[in-house]
Amino acid sequence: MAALKRFPLWSWFWLLFAAAYFLLPLYATLEFSLQTGAHSYGLGWYGTIIHDPEFRHSLLFSLRLALETVALSLVLMIPTVYGIHLWLPSARPVVEFISVLPFVVPPIALAVGVIGLFQGVPWFISSTQLLALLYVIQALPFTYRALDAGMSALDLHTLSDAAKSVGASWPKTLWHVVLPNLRTAVLAASFLTIAIVLGEYTISSLLLFNTFAVYIQHIGRTEAYSAAALAILSFGFTWVAMLAIFVLTRGRASRRPIAMVR
């Protein structure tokens, strides 16, 4: 029994099982995407995709949306979290409560409400800005959490008193003192936002926008092999974003933002 305990058999079993669950679908998708004939393999499907102008359009559109969402989220949330930490601790539970609401109201329900509300305002409901505005809401839970954790780790009162004593106004303090200290939290939340916006399908498809995920779905209807190639590319994007978060938050797992928007 003692000899058995030294080799953690069950632990290895679960780890290998998890690895298989994670890697098998990826392997299968990769193989699928490389099949160009009954027994021939090649990059043909990737070539087809890259030369499809819709691929570039939709990917660039989603990237632009992602950057807009990140910018808007930060502009909205940094002063808010700074404000509640420094001056309005009584507002903190309220903001915290609101920031988990997007989890209670699923994206599809939000889309229903937005369509019902703005049905009579066609220019607004068909403007791409609306999409970014709604993605900010989707990103709210983890943007808030990341900034809140980041600012909790700082001694904000001492920092801002010190800045004030040398004559800095609060916007200056925020920009030159607080933000540089929040770099990790801000960047980690931003990469997660980018990963999520790049994969977002629910709201964009219901509001009839051709985002990257809508494009993949469209291709998948007719072209299973191209769709597999797109899934691999899309996986690569997620991978890059997560790797960036990992490198940024190395050794501080508690600072890592977690998303739950499907």
Binding site: P25, G199, I216, L230, R256
Partner: peptide, 27 residues
């Protein structure tokens, strides 16, 4: 193994939606 696992988990928990569906159709 732990940091490797958490990074993998970050990717897998975010690799959802349309691409995941096609990955499973291929699998």
């Amino acid at each position: 193994l732990r940091p490797v696992l958490t990074t993998f988990s970050g990717v897998a928990s975010n690799f959802a939606g349309v691409p995941l569906a096609f990955a499973f159709i291929a699998t």
